[in-house]
Design a protein around this nucleic acid. Structure first.
Lengths: 232, 232
DNA sequence: GTCTATAAATAGATAGAC
DNA sequence: GTCTATCTATTTATAGAC
């Protein structure tokens, strides 16, 4: 690709940004943000070194002063994305009130929040990870596995305590996780929801799906504000 | 790419096949099946004309006797995938017992079934659609919109009838649809579930998520067999 | 329909001046 | 760090023989 083949369609109005404090300063940061946008829109293989450099306002050769290869730019984004999600999930668990129901709600809110706050990063981290060599994909895959187990543990605990009622916690965790992952594909400022509305609503869905006994089912309304887990 | 960079990771044990009766005979069919596998594994831009031809056992120039360009091969796959899903959803609605609960269950079973039966096709149809020009993506996008509305209508009807209890049917439909879409990313013969087990379980999840009042919540067990919608 | 051969453009990456 | 210039391989696609 030299010049854009056609107008972007995958993600129009979404802000091109990375989590706080992780964007490198100067040119390297501009390269990373350009890659975030282009990889999300056209994919890793659909973006050339010259596209990347052009979007960052530099010559293509200059890119190699900051990254040894195109793959390393993707690797940094993929790792950033998985790290941020895992960090948020862990923090959510720490801050959540005790009990599987509140913890599941907190996890889902954190997952949905992460995917709504950084949809481009989530998209690249998930959809382009396959373009990395196994060695460079491994760290992200390890983080993904850890994140998955956080949810699975909460679900299993909830079933053991009689709070949740699912025959197969693994399948339930997969289904719940799937809801949140897809948020990156459609959420944006053009949607009639705030990120907290989606996060809260999805947390309610997760509890319903898990058959959480005494949890307010009608809390799935369009109430704004995060108000994390004020239910026991 | 000339020779495989590394072993396939995205989808290992999944059969490379298309829905019954749609695979073209002869060389054109071999091209299409090769594209199904390679596009799913490496993406459209990650697969070269020579990869495609080599996998089909022909010279790269021969490909142009069957398709005018690489993009047309992808376009055929993308349209095939969206057509098959829409066809199954429509048929599921026709065959389903009356009532929003049974209809929602039937839709989810059909969606999950389609993604479990043809994960490669679902993956290509969804993840590589962005590589098509707007004109060639349009037919698939139209089908996608129609499929989406099938689910949305059932949810809205169920809410209106007091069978479902969700504040925002659109968001609920999105969440439910997201569960099923992701099935293509993980389901395969290496999983400890049959396609019907996943389909039935996910149908139960959807009803739970939607707050379906009087629906057997414990039917989410690992009971094999499709047995479509024997509940009212 | 299938091939060999090749054109024309673009790819990722490097050399070396400033 | 950034540039111009360039190398080398690969890309999509075509020409023309069989």
């Amino acid at each position: 690709m030299t010049t854009p083949r056609w107008e972007p369609r995958r993600l129009s109005a979404v802000a091109v940004e990375l989590p706080e404090g992780v964007t490198p300063p100067g040119t390297r940061g501009r390269i990373l943000l350009s890659a975030l946008r282009l990889f999300a829109e056209y994919g890793f293989h659909g973006t050339s070194i010259r596209d990347l450099a052009g979007a960052a306002g530099i010559n293509s050769a200059t890119l190699y002063a900051h990254y040894p290869a195109k793959e390393h730019v993707l690797a940094e984004l993929v790792l950033l994305g998985h790290t941020e999600l895992h960090r948020r999930l862990q923090q959510a668990l720490v801050e959540a009130p005790p009990g599987p129901a509140a913890q599941l709600a907190a996890l889902v809110r954190a997952q949905v929040g992460a995917h709504a706050d950084f949809p481009l990063l989530a998209l690249v981290a998930n959809a382009e990870l396959h373009a990395l060599s196994p060695e460079r994909a491994a760290p992200a895959l390890a983080l993904r596995e850890q994140s998955r187990e956080l949810g699975l543990r909460v679900l299993r605990l909830g079933v053991a305590q009689g709070v949740f009622h699912v025959a197969d916690p693994l399948l339930a965790a997969t289904a719940i996780g799937s809801m949140g992952m897809q948020v990156a594909h459609w959420f944006g400022p053009d949607q009639p929801y705030t990120r907290d509305q989606v996060a809260d609503t999805y947390a309610g869905y997760a509890l319903q799906l898990a058959g959480a006994a005494d949890v307010p089912a009608k809390k799935t309304a369009r109430a704004p504000g995060a108000t994390p887990a004020k239910k026991g």
